[in-house]
Amino acid sequence: MSVNLLTLEDGLTRLTLAPHIGGSIASWQVIASDQPLLRASTAQALSSGLANQLACYPLVPWSNRIGGGGFDGPDHWFALEPNNPAVALPIHGSAWQQAWDVVEHTAQYACLQLDSRLPFAYHAQLRYTLQGGQLSIELCVTHQDEHAAWHGLGLHPYLPRTAHTHLQAKTSHVWLCDGLGLPTERVRLPVDWDFNQLIALPHRRLDNCFTDWDGRALISQPDLGYALECRASNSPYCLVYCPPDEDFFCFEPVSHPVNAHHLPGHPGLQLLHKGQSARLGLHMQYRPL
């Protein structure tokens, strides 16, 4: 497929966007060395038209999996169908599978928007900014449906992984999951998942949600010569995805845990009526080592 790409530059880094593939980031790299700071998108990945093959995409109007065939609002049942052949449950909302429109584009800024009817009516906006080696992403959703609905937001960056990639993110607990990826039990952090200190990524599979995140993280890439200092807003949870034997991992700031629509109290979700909005932000600062 033909892909129209947008480019932003700040003198240190270059950001390439693929608005028509889920409002996604195709690449973010150091200009002088071409070193990828996020997973670089291949020509095959771009031609696939699949946002989850690229470098980062937005999660709207929820993050991760939802069980039960849908969820209840105050006065309406929202039925959901699986939307990814690799996953048995509906996952990551609907915005990543739709084309976004470009509202504004300058040398260091781009604003994208989406008017969706799936799984209900909402308006979403993405703002990308580059300045001094810092990538800032602002994600906003405004509910447009007559029936109120629970909303959650997130971002899904894919990052390079080497033998010495380290992560630090202060949290208190982690949700264990069943075979479908739905949460079963909230537990204290296992030693090899305790990212309160800067540690190497685990060798065993990790695809879990961490709670009580303080919104700050450090991703150290000594083999690649840089670190990323991260700050998130309205994101008290984060997901870490480390598939074994892959050259990438994911660190996802999210507003709610997996399947929050069916957890007591709907933790992290916001019940939005028509015209009401929710927001989430992420700033990633490039630091040469």
Rank of each mutant, 00 (worst) to 15 (best):
T13Q: 02
Q44R: 07
L54C: 06
V102F: 08
S116T: 06
W96Y: 10
L118A: 02
L80F: 14
R127K: 13
I31H: 03
S116I: 00
T106Q: 13
A79R: 15
D75I: 11
A95I: 08
N4G: 06
A40S: 04
L8I: 12
L114Y: 10
L89R: 10
L46D: 00
P74K: 04
T42S: 07
I91K: 03
S116N: 00
S94G: 00
L126M: 08
H92T: 03
L8A: 10
S27G: 00
Y109R: 14
G67S: 05
L80C: 12
Q98M: 09
R127N: 11
L118E: 10
G49K: 05
R39V: 15
L38A: 05
L46W: 06
A86C: 09
P61M: 01
S33H: 03
A99D: 14
D34L: 06
V102Y: 11
W77T: 06
L38N: 05
A51S: 11
Q97M: 12
V3N: 05
F120C: 04
G73D: 07
L50C: 09
A86N: 14
T42Q: 05
W100M: 14
A55S: 09
W62Y: 11
I91N: 06
G69V: 01
G22K: 10
Y57A: 00
H92W: 06
L38S: 03
D101L: 14
A32N: 01
G93A: 02
S47L: 13
Q98S: 07
S94P: 00
L114P: 14
W96M: 08
T42R: 00
L54K: 10
H92R: 05
H92N: 02
Q44L: 04
A45P: 01
L114C: 06
S27W: 11
D34W: 05
A124N: 04
H92S: 02
T16K: 04
L37A: 00
V102L: 12
N83F: 08
A18K: 00
A51N: 04
D115K: 12
S48F: 10
G11C: 11
W28S: 00
P85Q: 07
R14C: 09
W77F: 15
L126G: 03
V60C: 01
A32P: 04
N84P: 13
A124M: 03
S41K: 02
H20Y: 05
A55D: 01
A18Q: 01
S41L: 05
V30R: 11
D10H: 15
A110S: 04
N83I: 08
V87M: 14
R65Q: 09
N64I: 12
D101E: 15
N64K: 12
D115C: 11
A86T: 15
L15E: 04
D75R: 08
V87L: 15
L114W: 13
F71K: 06
L46H: 02
Q108L: 07
E9R: 15
W28R: 11
L89I: 12
